[in-house]
């Protein structure tokens, strides 16, 4: 009998915590002393993915830096729901300047810290997809190119949610937004090439680029931690479903994120100096319909008659992600092995 069962931990690292894991493998979010950098009382919608992603990322950054952190925040939902006078939900030194200049503000903060010899204090810039891929893109690219010591985090909910769900350059093809209504011959957003900011960041060959998703907390935290071990320009792109903008139930936020990953719609990867270093594999591949169907922004793809061409197009994009990043292992996964990626 050769039953060589290696470490198996019931829920492995899939759950937020796991009493069976060594303390060093537990998540920041499981910690009773986590910072709650974004505290209760914020005005985000019920089930907000961005609120969740921001707390995940910033708490992890706080732990990685021993609470020596300053954040610059772009205009957008995150800013509006966290700091309406007279209350702020932030527990960390935080500044909001403008919509499109967050990366540059962060550069200024980093420069000030360097000149003051306080390099133990680290800088995070954060914004939504609009503030990152559109209006803030120039400043972001400049920050990358100069390799300033800033971690930029984009919370991508694929449209301008704060202003009422208008299209951004991160809005996927066929998605209905307030400015890409589901009417006419090609309803919803156009199928362009999109603006794949993680790949653009990789093209800058900055020290660290990663994508993450609110449904994979450990991976997200590990990436923030890794980012904080590195000096220079770093970029993390976090996929954060928006119940309001996507037309999903408030309790589905994490589930939808998971579907985005399991269908290959959103690849979860990491790269250092422009080279791919980590790929989070798809656990159980699903067709893109499973991801699209629960979202009202894609409802026109299914009724009154299914838009098979558009669905096939989205499937092809997912398949390309799977091919390009190797999201599925060619070899069968060992049956009883493994405890996740701890």
């Amino acid at each position: 009998m050769t039953a060589t069962i290696v470490k198996f931990y019931q829920t492995g690292t899939h759950t937020v915590g796991n009493r069976l894991l060594d303390p060093e493998h537990r998540s920041v979010q499981a910690d009773m002393r986590r910072t709650n950098s974004l505290n209760s009382g914020h005005r985000a919608c019920q089930g907000c993915g961005e609120a969740l992603g921001a707390r995940y990322a910033i708490d992890a950054a706080m732990q990685a830096t021993d609470n020596q952190l300053i954040a610059a925040n772009a205009t957008g939902c995150l800013e509006v729901f966290s700091t309406p006078y007279p209350e702020t939900s932030w527990q960390i030194p935080w500044i909001h300047s403008l919509f499109g200049n967050t990366a540059a503000v962060a550069t200024g903060i980093a420069a000030a810290l360097r000149v003051k010899g306080r390099t133990e204090v680290r800088v995070v810039a954060q914004g939504g997809d609009g503030g990152t891929t559109d209006i803030g893109f120039g400043c972001l690219s400049g920050m990358f190119e100069r390799n300033d010591d800033v971690l930029y985090i984009c919370y991508d909910n694929e449209a301008y949610m704060n202003t009422g769900v208008q299209r951004s350059s991160a809005t996927p093809g066929a998605a209905r937004t307030a400015t890409t209504p589901a009417v006419g011959a090609a309803p919803g957003n156009v199928f362009g090439q999109g603006k794949n900011l993680p790949l653009i960041a990789m093209a800058h060959e900055i020290p660290y680029v990663a994508t993450a998703i609110v449904s994979e907390l450990r991976d997200l935290e590990a990436k923030v931690k890794r980012a904080m071990e590195i000096r220079g320009a770093r970029y993390i792109h976090i996929f954060v479903p928006c119940p309001l903008g996507w037309g999903t139930a408030s309790n589905q936020t994490i589930h939808i994120a998971r579907l985005a990953k399991e269908t290959g719609v959103f690849p979860v990867i990491a790269a250092e100096h422009g080279e791919l270093t980590k790929v989070s594999k798809i656990r159980k591949q699903l067709p893109v319909e499973d991801y699209l169907k629960p979202q009202r922004r894609f409802a026109h793809l299914f009724s009154p008659t299914p838009n098979l061409a558009a669905i096939a197009h989205i499937q092809a994009l997912a398949d390309r992600n799977i091919r390009r990043f190797g999201l599925i292992d060619a070899a069968p996964v060992g049956a009883a092995a493994g405890a996740g990626d701890n």
């Binding site: 540059a104 200024g108 810290l113």
Partner: peptide, 14 residues
């Protein structure tokens, strides 16, 4: 735009 923004960040950091 970045120049002034960098100055905003650095000034706010003292």
């Amino acid at each position: 735009f970045a120049a002034m923004s960098v100055a905003i960040g650095s000034s706010a950091t003292g």
